[in-house]
């Protein structure tokens, strides 16, 4: 008994304090559901929740609800989305990582069974070394790689993820067999950061946001970034400048189930466009250090295709799929 009373009290006080009680049913159109195919707290979840707030501010009479379907690089969420054919009230947040995960997990469902809606944001990758490292430039790195790839340990996120793909592409550009990359997978940026700060590994690859603070404080040194142009307030050359012809953005976007009617397709695209134009979205993009790279319709569908081809090729070259 006491347990329940306590529970109810706690729940009530949370509601009261945060002032975000439920608004009850009703409203103009049917509720939009946004699936974050990952656990709460990660990048896709964050994007979904920011989008929820932005849609609520841009189209106040539309109900929006975020739900999480975590697991296997998003492919479990993808399989669930594929089962909702023709549902015009469902969006799924996804991105580059999912493209790789589909390949690697041999997922039966692919992105061909979705309707691409929009690309939203990009984040670039950064290549760093510990402050004490003898490597000063990308050319030094290329030379070290060529001398003995086994001696260059690369810290990054999960095997086959964005960081690993960047490392593979860089090795290839430097004339080293991507299979030879001595990649040390870590769970999450924190662990890899620890290995770098402790000078346990040769280089680190991760999202700019993960390492930028430590580059600025001088604990890590940036060798390069994967963007096409130099990033503002970060003193690091692009990979191209450093002689490695690699460009890669960790992008995120929305897809909807396959088999949408043209009207539903247009309605979703319009809604997402309105969201993108809202001040709430712009603020959130700035706050999270994302780069706005909005793209819809055929343009996004084409982009998705080309990314699929590229990722497929490099994952195979790295020996990650059998």
């Amino acid at each position: 008994m006491r347990l329940r009373i306590l529970a109810a009290l706690a729940a009530l006080s949370v509601l009261a304090v945060s002032g975000c009680g439920d608004t009850g049913s009703g409203g103009g159109t049917s509720a939009l559901r946004i699936m974050a195919p990952a656990a709460p707290g990660g990048g896709w979840d964050q994007t979904s929740r920011v989008a929820e707030q932005a849609i609520k501010s841009a189209v106040p009479d539309r109900q929006v609800e975020v739900f999480n379907v975590p697991g296997a690089g998003g492919t479990i969420g993808l399989a669930q989305l594929a089962g909702e054919k023709g549902n015009g009230d469902l969006l799924m947040t996804m991105g580059l990582v999912m493209v790789g995960a589909i390949e690697q997990n041999k997922s039966k469902v692919t992105l061909a069974e979705t309707t691409p809606i929009a690309k939203l944001t990009e984040e670039y990758e950064i290549i760093v070394v510990p402050a004490e490292s003898p490597l000063k430039t990308l050319a030094d790195l290329a030379a070290a790689w060529k001398a003995d790839p086994a001696k260059v340990s690369v810290a990054g996120g999960s095997a086959g993820g964005t960081d690993h793909i960047v490392a593979g592409l860089m090795a290839k550009a430097a004339g080293v067999d991507p299979k030879q990359v001595n990649y040390i997978a870590h769970s999450g940026g924190g662990e890899a950061l620890n290995a770098l700060l402790g000078n346990k590994v040769t280089i680190g690859v991760s999202g700019v946001g993960e390492f930028a603070e430590h580059v600025k404080s001088g604990k890590l040194r940036a060798l390069g970034v994967t963007s096409a142009e130099r990033l503002p307030d970060l003193d690091a050359p692009t990979l191209k400048e450093g002689g490695m012809d690699v460009e890669l953005a960790n992008w995120r976007g929305f897809v909807a189930p396959a088999g949408l009617s043209d009207a539903d397709h247009k309605a979703l695209t319009d809604l997402v466009t309105k969201m993108h134009d809202s001040q709430a979205w712009k603020d959130a993009v700035a706050k999270n250090g994302w780069i706005d790279s909005f793209m819809t319709g055929q343009e996004f569908a084409g982009y998705l295709k080309s990314e699929e081809t590229r990722v497929k090729a490099i994952i195979a070259e790295m020996g990650l799929v059998s």
């Binding site: 086994a150 095997a159 299979k179 030879q180 990359v181 001595n182 790295m318 020996g319 990650l320 799929v321 059998s322």
Partner: peptide
């Protein structure tokens, strides 16, 4: 389980 990738 394949061991295609180089693993030191």
């Amino acid at each position: 389980v394949s061991t295609a990738a180089s693993q030191l």
